Computed example of a mutant assay.
Amino acid sequence: MRILLWHVHGSWTTAFVQGPHTYVVPVTPDRGPDGLGRARTFDWPDSVVEMPPERLRDADIDVVVLQRPHELALVDAWLGRRPPMIWLEHNAPHGDVPDTRHPAADVPGVTLVHVTHFNRLMWDAGRTPTTVVEHGIVDPGPRWTGELPRAAVVVNEPVRRGRTTGTDLLPAFADAAPLDVFGMGTEGVAAHAGLPADRCRAHELTQRDLHAELAHRRVYVHPVRWTSLGLSLLEAMHLAMPVVALATTEVTEAVPPGAGVVSNRIDVLTDAVREFVADPLYARSVGEGARAAALARYGLPRFLDDWERLLKEVAR
């Protein structure tokens, strides 16, 4: 099967392209948002092939995976036809959430796929056929060592996104343990949060380096108020890190008892950070529980099997 999709979400796509198909990603001379081509910082197999838009009409595409509203117009312009289409929604809705209508609502010929059951519940999809394929992770291995008595946080653009990413909560967590904040656009996060540099350090790393650095930290903290389900949280669990997270969106499903501490009480969360930092053996035990839970629910084989069934159903 030849599947057309855009390089939008590198971590999710890295798992998706581990399947048995040919994955066609558009590439444009400027490698702009609609033509990034193959990933530069993720390891993708040779089955992911770049193709300029002018060649797509003759590419015999079997299924299209849409991820952004304007891609439907690109399909019409670049392919001149509409193959079977899956609209993959990565995000939870924003705005007036109980009444937020999805762009794929009532669009004919589209199957809408959410990555969490929370997202499916919150989006209004109208009459569009809708299902859920939960995340899968390429296993980085149980790499946690935890020798650094610090807490790791992974968020993108914490200064711009503010309360959404829980940036305002960082001082409370930094009081419990010094923080290392990883992600794009993290420069200046300490000053923005009013923290001295020794309590909050910013790091921008490639995916290859990120896992190794996370694994050195004692505990993973997920302060995000509103997101779909952070893949970095699932990756930390795969690394065998103990996790401390807000009980928002899908987190309560992803982190079962014994895999970490989940609460909407900041005092409970900060006390948990202190306990993990003070007791490496306890941190190791809970981290092992986190890895077992993540492998069971978000392992790559289950993810690929679910997608294989859906792709065959949509393509027939």
Rank of each mutant, 00 (worst) to 15 (best):
R218W: 06
F303H: 15
R38M: 10
L79D: 02
I86M: 11
P103C: 07
L170P: 01
M85I: 14
V251M: 09
V138I: 13
L311F: 13
V132A: 08
L205Q: 11
V27C: 01
L295G: 01
H102S: 02
G188H: 13
G95A: 06
A191C: 07
G185F: 12
L269P: 01
P52Y: 05
L310D: 05
S11K: 09
T164N: 08
T100E: 11
P280I: 04
A247D: 13
D305Y: 04
E50M: 07
H70L: 06
G35R: 00
L214H: 13
P20Q: 06
A73E: 13
I137F: 00
L281G: 13
E253G: 00
W123T: 12
T249S: 14
A193S: 13
F118T: 15
P149S: 11
N91Y: 11
P149T: 05
P178E: 07
R201A: 15
V277E: 09
L72E: 09
G299T: 11
A245K: 13
T270G: 01
L214S: 10
H238D: 01
E204T: 08
L233V: 05
V277K: 03
V262N: 08
L214D: 14
D124H: 14
W78I: 04
N91S: 11
T227Y: 15
L234I: 15
T186S: 10
N91W: 14
M237A: 04
R40W: 02
V251A: 09
R163P: 01
T100Q: 14
E288K: 06
D43A: 10
M241F: 07
A294D: 03
E71L: 06
R55I: 00
I137A: 05
V8R: 15
W307S: 01
A247Y: 12
D198I: 02
R297H: 14
T130N: 13
A105C: 05
A177T: 13
L281R: 10
R38S: 13
V110M: 04
R57E: 11
A278M: 06
R208D: 14
A315T: 12
L88R: 08
V75L: 07
P178R: 01
A236H: 09
L36C: 03
T249L: 05
E54P: 03
L88Y: 12
D106L: 03
R309C: 06
M237N: 01
P98D: 08
T100N: 01
P301F: 13
A125P: 04
T131E: 07
M184E: 10
D180M: 08
R101L: 04
A104I: 09
G10E: 14
M1F: 02
V286A: 08
T164Q: 15
A151P: 03
